[in-house]
């Protein structure tokens, strides 16, 4: 565990908490893509199956359980409790265009052709693109509430910090995982445009609004 990895995990945790609090406090999930949240739930469930097979550390197990639980709670709030506030019309990204390529890619490019390994690889690929329905929703409505922007910034920073963690681990431990690195780079690149808008607008107190 190095400082970049810890900062990445805390950023990830912060993102999930911000999202849950936003929905809970405003009693609304307006501006949030339910499709991205479904994809994240699939990511956690397929990656953290090793909770049942491999013990790594108490920290590792607790974080995995928290991510799965928070993801389930988010889906419950969006699709059950505050269903009426869910922005169906704008959340129109076709997730099969992400799911199917990720399944195929995981079957072709993986470290080991075993069920657990292919599910892990699938979750890594899917996570890298899972934010696309959310970014699509923001681009369709042309704006995002500040709290949604903070959520996206924390969530995007998490994988960017993991990239630093992987550079550190490569230098310090000669450890690397090309699948994770490749997907992590793709994931971070997808946020770049948003990062730019966040820094130039949201941090200056303006609303995130896309040019018409």
């Amino acid at each position: 565990m190095n400082i970049f990895r810890l900062a990445g995990d805390l950023s990830h945790l912060l993102a999930i908490i911000i999202l849950l609090l936003k929905i809970w406090k405003t009693r609304s999930c307006a501006g949030i893509s339910g499709k991205s949240q479904v994809l994240f739930a699939i990511v956690y469930l397929t990656r953290y199956l090793d909770l049942f097979t491999t013990y790594i550390s108490l920290y590792n197990s607790i974080m995995k359980i928290v991510f799965i639980a928070a993801s389930g709670a988010t889906l419950y709030l969006m699709y059950v409790k505050f269903k009426a506030t869910y922005d169906h019309n704008h959340d129109s990204f076709r997730i099969e265009f992400l799911l199917i390529p990720c399944v195929i890619l995981a079957l072709i490019i993986n470290h080991d052709f075993t069920v657990m390994e292919i599910l892990w690889t699938f979750s890594i690929y899917l996570e890298s693109v899972a934010i696309l329905p959310q970014l699509f929703l923001v681009s369709k409505t042309g704006e995002a509430e500040s709290i949604t922007s903070h959520y996206l910034f924390a969530l995007g920073s998490y994988r960017a910090l993991y990239l630093l963690n992987w550079i550190y681990r490569y230098m310090a431990e000669s450890h690397y995982d090309l699948i994770a690195i490749f997907a992590g780079v793709v994931q971070t690149i997808l946020y770049c445009d948003f990062f730019y808008l966040y820094i130039t607008k949201v941090l200056k107190g303006k609303k995130l609004q896309l040019p018409a």
Binding site: K64, F67, H111, W166, E173, D177
Partner: peptide, 10 residues
């Protein structure tokens, strides 16, 4: 180097 270092990550 060691491949597959990411299983202890989240």
């Amino acid at each position: 180097g060691n491949e597959k270092a990411s299983k202890d990550e989240l």
